[in-house]
Design a protein around this nucleic acid. Structure first.
Length: 226
DNA sequence: GTTCTAGAAC
DNA sequence: GTTCTAGAAC
């Protein structure tokens, strides 16, 4: 198995408040050594400045691509590499830190409508216990179809389709307003405080629709929008 | 993306 | 009265 650096969750990133910082990091990662977790000639992986789970990294292509809706079939090779590296990192973190006590699951994917310029793939553990997880939008951006699993995005590109066409943008925005459901047991909660209390205690296993048991990594696959 | 905060919800 | 959400500003 490929090895990676220790996960230093205490690292305090510097990019807060700058909506264009990911583009700068992608083009010149050596200028941001304190937040870079791993880099190769095609991609850069950094610590999320406001992690929404115990483990939360962002994987960016070095090449400038604004967001997931810009991806086209010509990016299949790049996306395959992003998924390969993301899966290796998730596998490493799982074996290194999660052992058998916690859920050995990571989600790899994209927000349908991101807030930050420059394509970034989330690599996130599925505990979703974090002081930075505060709003309904935070929650639903990972637990509705607003979250586009990387494997789903790859399939769509291979089929010659684009993601998040303009006519669907309103649909995606509205997903963020949906009721708050526990991602494990699907129980509904009135507000974030109640949801977070429950999620910290819910012991039901996170069930995904598609699993690669040989890797121990589950790539959650949401129902497609009509 | 976050912070701040008015006013809605309780 | 306090908690919580959502929109403007950054």
């Amino acid at each position: 198995m490929q090895t990676f650096p220790p996960y230093e969750s205490s690292v305090k990133p510097v990019q807060r408040g700058d909506l264009n910082v990911l583009r700068a990091i992608a083009s010149n990662p050596s200028s941001f050594p304190e937040i870079v977790y791993f880099a190769d000639d095609q991609v850069v992986t950094i610590y999320d400045a406001f992690p929404k789970s115990r483990f939360h990294l962002l994987l960016l292509p070095r090449q400038y691509i604004p967001e997931v809706s810009w991806l086209a079939p010509c990016h299949v090779g790049l996306l395959q590499h992003m998924i390969k590296v993301g899966t290796e990192i998730a596998t490493f973190l799982t074996q290194q830190y999660l052992k058998s006590k916690e859920e050995q699951t990571f989600m790899l994917g994209f927000h349908a409508i991101p807030s930050l310029d420059q394509l970034h793939m989330h690599i996130i553990s599925t505990d979703f216990v974090s002081p930075f997880l505060k709003t309904r939008k935070h929650w639903n951006s990972f637990h509705t179809d607003f979250f586009l699993p990387a494997s789903y995005v790859l399939e769509e590109l291979k089929a010659g389709r684009r993601l998040v066409p303009a006519k669907d943008r309103e649909k995606y925005v509205n997903l963020l307003k949906r009721p708050l459901l526990c991602h494990r047991c699907k129980e509904s909660f009135q507000n974030m405080k109640a949801l977070k209390q429950h999620v910290s205690e819910c012991r039901q296993l996170f069930v995904a629709k598609q699993a690669d048991a040989s890797q121990g990594i589950i790539d959650k696959y949401f129902i497609k929008l009509n």
